[in-house]
Design a protein around this nucleic acid. Structure first.
Lengths: 224, 224
DNA sequence: GTTTTGCTATGTCACAGTTAAATGCGGGTT
DNA sequence: AACCCGCATTTAACTGTGACATAGCAAAAC
């Protein structure tokens, strides 16, 4: 971001917020008055069907924008929940329109962010629809790993991954048992190990091959 | 759209284009110089995995915007293909930035459109992940029906649906055979009938109940 | 008129993944 | 020390869906 862009963004920033793990940040169906950029910490976006089943839409990592959908559509289509303590930069929704009028470069970035989220959801849709369970778990770990690399979260072939196995299962439309078995298989084969809230990759090439990921770098996207 | 908005949009319109059924409009991986609004006709957005399997991301209906993702991200993450003859309103990608500078209201609508697409993909993801095959097919038919109603395409409880069963199967991550069997079940139960390129709904309430759809109206969104 | 092609329809069998239940472990609480 | 809770792990039984094969039909091509 250029100095001008930082200044423009700072003008719409209301403040910062810290939430503890487990805190609901946004609620499906509610009308939210704020958007947030994630400064640190991790969380999930999820939605619940009438049959009580939960779908995790995306895992939230630092740099992600939260709440744009509700801001422009008037009502949140999903909920957002913290999985660790999170620090958030808070933006006022009412200022969104001023943002478009006074900072077109930043507004363009917002559309870019929305398009990137859409692209990722499309990739996830293709995963659920056309990858097997093993391929899907591999795909998810590779994608999370790539984000971790981009965020400089990786040390000694390991990065924090403070989610539950049920979270990954609900993201991929798998049962908890099958997800557990698949992760055990990767651990046994010494490809990847996820335990104690950390992901360790031993063989990124093999995991990418299993997940049918062409190992392109994480998609470039702006921050708000 | 107000008169001013129409004028602003018209200034970025390059022209109109008619494509025949089967024509690829945008290609995954390519860099596209244009965006399109669908004036008439139908198509599909799809992507193909390394294993050769095809995922249909969305069905394209009149009013949809095509190519925004490629325009802001620099490269199309999926392909777009006409399923019938389609008339498209063509916008120049190079003019997108001017759009943001000179018509903030229209730029805001673009972000709104992107957020709406994202919301739909989230709902589709939840369908693939947490609905059974029967529930998924019912969900898809209800959502297509609702769009048909909003577009005034429905006559005598019937609307055009010029897609193949393989398209729906690939949208829901199901096999063609299973999709065929499920559609047959709906026909036998006299809930819905899809044949000869037309969808006829006999019992929208029952289909909604099966599909776990709360029958809210189609999400409101702007046009470009 | 015949053949080919694309799509839809149907039957059968196999299995990838689900469901239900039980167990183990570590951390927190009493 | 004992108990409780949340999460991970494991096992067994089950099934929804996929794969395969075959057939029918209409339109297009020859």
């Amino acid at each position: 971001m250029s100095d001008t862009e930082v200044e423009q963004t700072q003008r719409f920033k209301v403040g910062e917020l810290t939430v503890e793990a487990g805190t609901p940040i946004l609620t499906e169906g509610a009308n939210s008055a704020q958007l947030f950029t994630v400064l640190s910490g991790m969380g999930i976006r999820h939605t619940t069907l009438e049959n009580g089943r939960r779908q995790v839409l995306t895992f939230i990592l630092p740099g992600d924008l939260i709440g744009l959908q509700g801001a422009v559509m008037g009502e949140m289509g999903h909920s957002v929940e913290a999985r660790t303590r999170m620090r958030l930069c808070v933006f006022d929704r009412a200022a969104l329109w001023d943002f478009f009028k006074n900072a077109p470069a930043r507004a363009y970035d917002l559309t870019w962010i929305a398009a990137t989220e859409e692209h990722f959801l499309g990739e996830a849709l293709a995963t659920l629809g056309q990858r097997t369970a093993e391929q899907a778990v591999a795909w998810a770990l590779v994608r999370l790993w790539q984000r971790g690399v981009a965020l400089d979260l990786v040390e000694n072939n390991s990065m924090p991954l403070p989610f539950r196995q049920q979270d990954l299962a609900d993201a991929l439309g798998l049962s908890l048992v099958h997800t557990n078995k698949t992760l055990a298989k990767f651990r046994t084969k010494q490809i990847a190990s996820w335990r104690d809230g950390r992901l360790t990759l031993t063989d990124i090439d093999e995991l990418s091959r299993i997940g049918l990921v062409d190992e392109q770098k994480a998609v470039r996207r702006p921050l708000l």
